[in-house]
Design a protein around this nucleic acid. Structure first.
Lengths: 251, 251
DNA sequence: CGTCCAAATTGATGCAAGTCAAATGCTACT
DNA sequence: AGTAGCATTTGACTTGCATCAATTTGGACG
């Protein structure tokens, strides 16, 4: 079975092994038959490891590849002409980064490692070629992209209709369920991103994020020390996210 | 060549003629070679005509098709469990509606005709099958979907960082350029949507939208009477959209 | 181990936009 | 043509969050 191969320290680009990967139930392999997995492995490149703060790719540079997070986490953001930043997403292991750039020659956003992060790289030409051959993979890519469109709509709703508390509760619950799907504790995790990133993503000021965290803490809903977070009362959090809607109903 | 077949008035579903369509430079045909156009025509169905307010499809019903707007215009929105509506987009002739639903079995949103509207229908199974055969078409669908993801990010930015005036100026300019691409006046058009829809889409109260319209009018930037709008000073509008960013720079 | 700088917290104040309320203008329908 | 029922506008008032300012905490590094 050549198990040892996984551990050799050969120079990259190394061919990644989707067969061996523990994320195969989250990542692209979940979409395709075992016997087609080889053709996916053929086009994947083992990306290098990025330290916190390093860029995986930069907005406006030539679009070459999508990246799957293998370990660690990534934040994407767009920068306006005037230098304003807007965080557009956070990506965890198994998630695919770069789908928003499939429209053009250049990356539509910048991707930055939030911690020590490793990725797998899928060159677009090869990926497009392969999706032409594997209908299941094509379908899955459509699925992922439309999912991302829907995420955008949900975010728009959050931004335009919900209070600071509701936005933050939503984010915490989203992170929670994503940790859970990765077999990590849904109630006890460490936030990969800074308060600043949370604020920017949710359209709030950092101060507001900080205040809401302490308010939640005082109410006994969460316990937070720096980036370490413990969700003490998930139901209460869910209640917060629906608070607004419930009032809307009562009218 | 059986030219005559294209003009018969047979009962629908009628095969649409992309060859004859005046939107072929905006719609899906723009992506594919002339000799492949036939295979696209093979899967397109001439949709029926919808009156203002009629639904093209409904959220949570079985996802069957994407629709290209032929004439008129469409608004899409999502409805929460509590009945809250969030307008997610406006679609003009040549634009493709339903891409956000390619992830699942059900439509992710509801599409409603804003005026008398005709559409062409692309059944998904057939569309996916065809994109597997025509790399150019596949590429174009990826393009459209990633474009929509980017639109979502732009909207998120608008909602989280910009004032009411900036949001409305942006919308007016967006509509303007989309009218222009359709060979209609970029400065003199009639809004297909109600103030309410604008407000909802931009995360504002109707009253605020109304006030901003009159403010712009008093400043001589636009002239608005009901849904009829004339952009008197496009540069001033562009300035408004950048106002925020410019202040950000000065800091 | 102490120093330095960025991140996070806490408090005080102001304002943009929401909400409530009422008048006016449209449009569709009989 | 007349009326009913929305859509839009305008005004008065309220408020959630941003902004400004000042500490406090924490992590990186010599």
């Amino acid at each position: 079975m050549a198990q040892a191969l996984k551990f050799r320290q050969a120079p990259s680009p190394l061919k990644a092994s989707c067969h061996q990967c523990s994320l195969s139930n989250l990542c692209l392999p979940l979409a395709i038959q075992d016997n087609d997995l080889d053709s996916l492995e053929d086009i994947v490149q083992q990306g290098r490891i990025y330290n916190r703060g390093e860029h995986i790719f930069d907005q406006s540079t030539q679009f070459r590849s999508c990246f799957a997070v293998k370990s660690g986490s990534i934040k994407t953001s767009i920068i306006t002409e005037s230098g304003e930043e807007q965080v557009t997403g956070f990506f965890m292991p198994g998630e695919l980064v770069g789908l928003d750039s499939m429209s053009g020659e250049a990356y539509a956003c910048t991707a930055k490692a939030l911690e020590r992060t490793s990725v797998c790289e899928f060159p677009v030409e090869k990926l497009e070629e392969l999706t032409g051959k594997l209908p299941d993979l094509q379908h899955h890519i459509y699925h992922l992209m439309s999912q991302e469109i829907q995420n955008g709509h949900q975010l728009a709703m959050l931004l335009s209709k919900n209070t600071a508390e509701e936005r933050i509760a939503s984010l915490l619950l989203s992170l929670s369920s994503r940790f859970q799907r990765r077999r990590m504790s849904p109630t006890n995790f460490s936030l990969p991103m800074a308060r600043n990133d949370i604020a920017n993503f949710l359209g709030l000021a950092v101060e507001t994020v900080s205040r809401v965290f302490t308010r939640f803490q005082n109410q006994g809903i969460i316990r937070a020390r720096g980036r370490e977070v413990e969700l003490l009362d998930v139901e209460a959090l869910q209640l917060v996210t629906r608070e607004f809607s419930r009032q809307g109903c009562q009218q």
